[in-house]
Amino acid sequence: MALTIATRTRVVIDNDWAGDPDGLVALAHHLLSPGHRVDAITSSLLSPVFAPAPGSAAAGALLASQLVELVGGPHRPPVLAGSEHPFQDGGNPSAAADAIVGAARADDELPLVVVCGGPLTNVAAALEQDPGIASRMSLAWVGGSLTGAAEYNRDTDPAAAARVLATPGLQVRQFPLETYRQCAWSVAQIEDLLTSVGPVGDWLWQRFVELPLPEGFEVDAVWPLGDSCPLIGTALSAESSTWQPGEHETVQVCTRIDGALLFGDMVALLRRHARRSTARGGASAT
Results as ranks from 00 to 15, higher is better:
M1N: 11
G19H: 00
D20R: 07
H29Q: 12
L31F: 11
S33P: 04
S33E: 09
P34G: 14
G35V: 09
H36T: 09
T42E: 08
P48I: 13
S56L: 04
S56D: 07
A58E: 12
A64P: 13
A64K: 12
A64L: 14
Q66C: 06
E69Y: 07
G72P: 07
P74H: 14
P78A: 09
L80M: 15
H85T: 15
H85I: 04
P86W: 05
F87L: 01
D89K: 01
G90P: 05
N92Q: 15
N92S: 10
N92G: 14
P93I: 08
P93N: 07
A96L: 12
A97M: 09
A97W: 06
A99G: 09
A106R: 13
D108F: 02
E109T: 13
L112R: 10
L120P: 03
L120E: 01
V123F: 04
A124D: 01
D130L: 08
D130M: 08
D130Y: 07
P131N: 06
S135M: 08
S135L: 13
R136N: 03
A140D: 14
S145E: 05
S145Y: 04
A149L: 00
A149K: 04
A150Q: 12
Y152M: 09
N153D: 02
D155P: 00
D157F: 02
P158H: 03
R163T: 03
V164N: 02
T167W: 05
L170P: 01
Q171A: 14
V172S: 04
Q174A: 03
P176F: 01
P176G: 03
T179L: 02
Q182T: 10
A184E: 08
A184R: 05
A184G: 03
A188F: 00
Q189K: 10
E191W: 00
L194Y: 07
S196H: 08
S196I: 05
S196N: 13
V200L: 10
V200M: 04
W203Q: 05
W205L: 01
V209L: 14
P212K: 08
G216R: 09
F217G: 05
P224T: 04
G226P: 01
D227V: 06
C229W: 05
G233L: 07
A235I: 11
L236E: 04
W243K: 06
Q244W: 01
Q244S: 09
P245T: 02
G246L: 00
E249K: 03
V251R: 03
C254I: 11
R256D: 01
I257C: 06
D258E: 09
G259A: 14
L262S: 14
M266A: 15
V267K: 13
A268V: 06
S277Q: 14
T278F: 14
T286V: 06
